[in-house]
């Protein structure tokens, strides 16, 4: 285990261990569509990686393979040195039982574009659900932790509200708190601000920036170039199922080496 304990007090009451991610030769097809065409990517523990690219470039699919929401057709994904979704024995990869995959996912937080909060549960119950049922935490303890997380995302007064009573930005902040409740070593964000009204984007990005500073490993798929520039340690540009280039934001965003990257940036900047 090559995990790092964060020194930042903002990380919360419990020490969060952060995980590294290694993606090797990942291919994925949707029927005749070759969505991922051999992806190799390393994310060091505690780093923030922002994935950019036009729609249909495979960035969301790549993100979803990391917690096995999407099965890969070939190649491997490992988080903190452990294969995700498979067990390797010799030259074979054995698919894990659902139970074991679910257990692996408790170490990986995922934030969806459309929040996917549970509409029939209060904000507090949304956050408490996974720690109680997946990690078998006592409810009291989980609730206390949940309230702290709500405070951290600036929604301490919304614990008893239902998701529909909140704005989009507030819902996404609850979704982030829900993912954090498992104290994951890795956080995946799938276009976390794309479903939000423009004036609500900032509040969500602020929360994510705050998390980035706390030292959790994060992979963020987004269209927010300014956010990438400010927060990312590494920017990855994808197109047509391949990683076109990657590097520090100053390099990829300001002096891209590839024509394709330049063309994309000129459109979104």
């Amino acid at each position: 285990m090559s995990s790092v304990t964060t020194a930042d007090p903002a990380a919360g009451s419990t020490a969060t261990t952060t995980a590294k991610v290694e993606i090797r030769a990942v291919h994925k097809n949707f029927g005749p569509l070759h969505v991922l065409r051999g992806i190799d990517l390393d994310v060091r523990a505690g780093e923030v990686t922002v994935v950019l690219g036009p729609s249909g470039s495979g960035k969301s699919t790549l993100l979803r393979t990391i917690n096995h929401l999407e099965k890969v057709d070939s190649g491997t994904v490992s988080v903190d040195g452990t294969l995700v979704g498979y067990r390797r024995s010799g030259n074979k990869l054995y698919e894990l039982r659902e139970r074991d995959v679910l257990k692996q996912r408790t170490r990986i937080g995922f934030v969806f574009q459309n929040f996917h909060l549970f509409p029939h549960l209060t904000v507090l119950d949304n956050i408490v659900e996974a720690p109680v049922s997946a990690l078998k935490r006592p409810r009291k303890e989980a609730e206390a932790a949940a309230r702290k997380l709500l405070e951290r995302v600036g929604l301490a007064d919304k614990a008893e509200s239902y998701p529909k009573q909140l704005s989009g930005g507030q819902q996404q902040r609850v979704a982030i708190a829900r993912a954090l409740a498992l104290e994951p070593g890795l956080l995946l964000f799938d276009e976390p601000t794309s479903a939000l009204d423009p004036e609500l984007v900032g509040e969500v990005l602020d929360v994510i920036k705050d998390l980035a500073a706390s030292g959790t490993t994060m992979i963020v798929v987004t269209h927010e170039i300014g956010f990438a520039r400010e927060v990312a340690d590494t920017v990855v540009f994808m197109d047509e199922g391949r990683i076109v280039e990657q590097g520090p934001p100053a390099e990829v965003l300001d002096s891209p080496r590839h024509e394709r990257t330049r063309a994309f940036l000129s459109k979104v900047l």
């Binding site: 139970r99 679910l102 996912r105 937080g109 909060l117 997946a134």
Partner: peptide
């Protein structure tokens, strides 16, 4: 029920 609900539950590792 929206498929996203199942994905969210699965991503949180909630038992089946």
């Amino acid at each position: 029920v929206d498929e996203g609900q199942l994905e969210a539950a699965a991503s949180l590792g909630i038992p089946r």
